[in-house]
Nucleic acid binder design. Structure first.
Length: 369
DNA sequence: TCTGGGGTCCTAGGACCC
DNA sequence: TCTGGGGTCCTAGGACCC
């Protein structure tokens, strides 16, 4: 399940909850199929409203962004005034409510907006920051999840004020250097991060949880091919290439492992990513000749492919090494991209992914298409 | 209560180099 | 020949966020 209304949340329904459980908790709930295209369109529209105010917009997700309005005040009035105007425009143009936190720093604005949801406006003036923060529970801090909260509780710390009154070395011992130092600074309202509109992705990935656990090598290989194609497509869309390919496997018992390999050159080629991913999964004993005896093969619940160490694709194609010949896979991707552009996402795809439940495994990596 | 899918960042150990 | 320290890169795992 993707999300839940506040009425459903009153029954204990949360986002990311399995559908069956959500229905159990709230049998009267209406279930609506998601419309991702509509969400994307609304997202683009509200981000444009933000950019009408300032170029310093850092999107946090489809429906959230940080805005630095310091320079916009001369034009549009005080920060609270700007916030109210944005809320009005979003309501008028998109028929959506939104919550806005106004504060001297990003993390205080974030906490403020969280606490005035839904459809609220919270303004925390600079001299009110500590009075606002210190009574809040430690879990309200951005970056304090269940684990860190438990560790803080073991130290007898329950509020942000408690963190502020604790020596930073105590926090570092309990939570690690980075987190300990960071939380202590936040507890005093110190956050030097600036709104940076130029952030680019560090990794691109795709993963899938199976409805039922998979043991069939052919099915695993097919999914690997599909995921590799999606990742490569995202890379080409962003004009990026990846040097590191990693796979993620979650077994039936929820144990999760990752394996990664860094290549000499960055790639955005479906087949290259698929070949590397296949190698990594083979090394785990799930595919190929080294596959463990059938009885020992763990059922796989989730399979993922991720591309990291991204570099700009630039204009030039990959340097061919001595004795190396272009193999046609990159050209195949380009042709397929153009076909999908014209005829839709499902226009072309690997034959191995055609809809036959027990189809043959995809072609092995090497060899021209 | 058995847990989506997209990400970010941190830690820790090992290899390698100066 | 041995030793130390620092920096960088890579890999694996884990916490956390929306």
């Amino acid at each position: 399940m993707l999300s839940a209304t506040y009425e459903a949340r009153a029954y204990g329904v949360r986002s990311a909850m399995p559908m069956a459980r959500a229905r159990r908790l709230c049998p009267t709930a209406a279930v609506v199929a998601p419309d991702h295209a509509a969400y994307r369109a609304a997202s683009v529209a509200i981000m444009k409203i933000f950019r009408d105010v300032t170029p310093l917009v850092a999107p946090l997700s489809v429906d959230e962004a940080f805005l630095d309005v310091a320079g916009a005040r001369a034009l549009f009035g005080s920060a609270p005034r700007i916030a109210a105007d944005i809320r009005r425009r979003v309501a008028a143009e998109q028929d959506l409510t939104c919550s806005v936190g106004v504060a001297p720093s990003m993390f205080v604005a974030k906490i403020a907006s969280t606490r005035c949801k839904p459809d609220g406006l919270a303004v925390i003036a600079p001299d009110a920051v500590l009075a606002f923060l210190h009574p809040l529970p430690t879990g309200a801090l951005w970056g304090v999840g269940p684990r860190a909260e438990a560790a803080l509780t073991r130290l007898g710390l329950h509020t942000i004020g408690d963190i502020a009154d604790t020596p930073v070395d105590t926090l570092r011992r309990a939570l690690g250097d980075a987190v300990g130092t960071h939380l202590h600074r936040l507890s005093w309202g110190i956050d030097e991060r600036r709104v940076d509109p130029a952030t680019t992705e560090v990794t691109v990935g795709a993963e899938r949880t199976f409805a039922t656990d998979i043991t069939e090598p052919a099915a695993l290989a097919r999914e690997l091919l599909r995921l590799s194609g999606r990742v490569a497509g995202q890379l080409r869309l962003r004009h990026r290439r990846a040097r590191t390919i990693s796979v993620k496997v979650r077994y039936g018992d929820f144990r999760t492992v990752t394996r990664a390999r860094t290549l000499r050159d960055g790639t955005d080629v479906s087949q290259a990513i698929y070949a590397t991913a296949t190698d990594l999964v083979t090394d785990l004993g799930l595919l190929g000749a080294g596959r463990a005896a059938a009885a020992e093969v763990m059922a796989v619940r989730l399979l993922g492919v991720r591309a990291g160490n991204l570099v700009d694709a630039g204009g030039a194609s990959k340097q061919l090494r001595l004795g190396e010949r272009p193999d046609g896979w990159a050209e195949l991707d380009r042709v397929a991209d153009r076909a999908r552009e014209r005829f839709g996402a499902d226009a072309v795809g690997p034959a191995a992914l055609l809809d036959h439940p027990e189809g043959p495994p995809p072609a092995p990596p090497p060899g021209p298409p």
